[in-house]
Amino acid sequence: MLGHLPYALAAWLILWGLYGIVTSRNLIHLVICLAVLQTSTYLILLAIGYKAGAVAPIYADMPAGTVAVDPVVQALMLTDIVVEATVVALLLAIAVQAHERGGSLDPARLCALKG
């Protein structure tokens, strides 16, 4: 059962991220909550590809055949991290611009402004 705790932790982070977005009154804060939501996916991937007692999949100083953890999930996590960084940058830019045009970072007030 203990080995399943990382998966529960991932769900915990997903729900906190969603909670943050649902209750946010500031777009910059909201975007960071989205980033927290995303970190949960790193955790699931990490937990899935981990093998107890194995080494990192880097064979520079290791004989071939040494047991290593799954390299695929790590490749997926790298892609995931880049996606996170860029989506966050894009959303922050939109938020800043919305503040510039609408004078507020509060999603509720922007909504009202739009009419």
Binding site: I21, I94, L110
Partner: peptide, 12 residues
């Protein structure tokens, strides 16, 4: 403001 607000909803 409209497109920006729409883009935020869309993106999030």
């Amino acid at each position: 403001v409209g497109p920006l607000q729409g883009a935020i909803n869309f993106a999030v």
